[in-house]
Amino acid sequence: MSKKIREGLIKKILFIFGSVSILITISIFATLLSESLIFFQKVPILNFLFGTKWTPLFKPQNFGVLPLVAGTFLIVIFSSLISLPIGLLSAIYLSEYSHMKVRKIVKPFIEILAGIPSIVYGYFALTTITPIIRKFYPDTSIYNALSASIAVGIMTIPMVLSLSEDSMRAVPKSLREGAYALGLTKLEVVFGVVIPASFSGIVASFILAISRAIGETMIVALAAGATPKLTLNPLESIQTMTGFIVQISQGDVVQGTIEAHSLFAVAMLLFVITLTMNLLSKLIVNRFKEDY
């Protein structure tokens, strides 16, 4: 076999493997879309998107998804208040202030958090975080949004830290040295040079962490509860979109019913939200990307 033929064969094989992820994504989208269309033949899409009551398993049935969306973003907001600042400040320390030996020890140790199964975080939130919260706020529900948010925030810290720190370390040393030559302090160099130069990577890490929080399943299923309601109180029980999917997937709902098809409608909405966040991340990276 000639070298040219081998190269052509390898190219085709790599193309096939590279196309697998695209085909899987298209298959998932097609499945969600086809099943969702059956649901929307029975439930108007405007009632689904803007309705304020979600009771698909009880009579009378209501299919307003806003309580699930509100519960999801309640988790996202409070988890982001934990993961984004802690992850960014930790990345700044490891990139700009810590000794190399400290970085080699601390960063892998923090990244271990990303390898812990989410169901472990869920039990940790339910059995450890919730009792602590109830010591300060006795009226807190056993299943509540705050404990789930804290666990999701802890889980997404490594994502923010790792991506932000890598982006900061990619900033050329010459930029730092030029800033020091102008008389800037360490803090001024960090916030005036390093962070602006690595802004695209930092924002991308934020959006990816938020996307991860939106799609989190087991933590919210175990710790946040299963009470779909429109509330801003993180101490109450809520239900997220992924939590509802888990509830329906337990097998108590007959396949082919409107209740079962509501799962695909919620999953389709979740898919669109996550895809939008990923596309937004891509646009921001391309918009603010710096080439050195």
Rank of each mutant, 00 (worst) to 15 (best):
K42D: 10
I273M: 13
E177I: 08
L126W: 05
F271T: 06
A70T: 10
T185P: 01
L182W: 07
G64D: 11
E216C: 07
S162H: 12
L37Q: 07
S200E: 08
T55E: 12
I238Y: 02
G51R: 11
T25L: 15
A179Y: 07
R176N: 10
N144K: 06
M1N: 09
T185S: 15
L46W: 09
L275F: 14
T242H: 00
S21V: 11
K3S: 14
L84E: 04
N278E: 08
K101F: 07
I16P: 04
L184F: 14
V203P: 08
L235E: 05
I154N: 06
E96Q: 13
F206I: 14
S34H: 03
A204K: 03
V253Q: 04
L263K: 13
G153M: 03
E188S: 14
I24S: 06
E236C: 01
F15Y: 12
T55I: 02
I116S: 07
I13G: 07
L161C: 07
G201M: 08
I248S: 03
V152D: 05
M241E: 02
V152L: 14
S95C: 02
I10E: 10
R134Q: 15
I82S: 04
L263A: 14
T55L: 06
F109L: 15
L14H: 06
L89Y: 12
N286I: 04
A170K: 11
M155H: 09
S149N: 07
G183T: 08
S83D: 11
I13Y: 12
L23V: 12
V43T: 12
I245N: 01
I150T: 07
A226Y: 07
F199I: 15
S205L: 09
L269M: 14
I110T: 10
E165A: 05
Q250W: 00
K3L: 15
R134T: 09
S164R: 01
A125L: 02
E259F: 03
A145Y: 10
L89A: 01
L182G: 00
K229M: 11
G183V: 05
K59Q: 12
L235C: 06
T31W: 06
M277N: 00
M100I: 12
I202D: 04
V253R: 05
T31L: 15
L235V: 05
V253F: 04
Y93H: 03
L279V: 13
F73G: 01
V190D: 03
P67Y: 05
P196F: 12
A170V: 00
E35R: 14
S211P: 00
S167V: 01
R6E: 13
K101H: 04
G225V: 07
I112K: 05
N144C: 08
K53W: 01
S27Q: 05
V152I: 15
M159E: 10
T257N: 02
L275K: 08
I195K: 09
E165N: 07
I202A: 02
P117Q: 03
T217W: 02
K186D: 14
H99D: 09
T140F: 10
G251E: 02
I77P: 00
R6F: 13
G122P: 05
S118N: 11
K11Y: 13
I105L: 13
T242K: 00
E7T: 10
V69W: 03
T257Q: 02
V266S: 01
P138E: 06
L57Q: 03
K289H: 13
S162M: 11
I26E: 05
I38V: 13
L23G: 10
D166F: 00
I195P: 08
I210Q: 03
L230Y: 00
I92W: 01
I258Q: 02
A197S: 15
T276G: 15
S167L: 00
I22H: 01
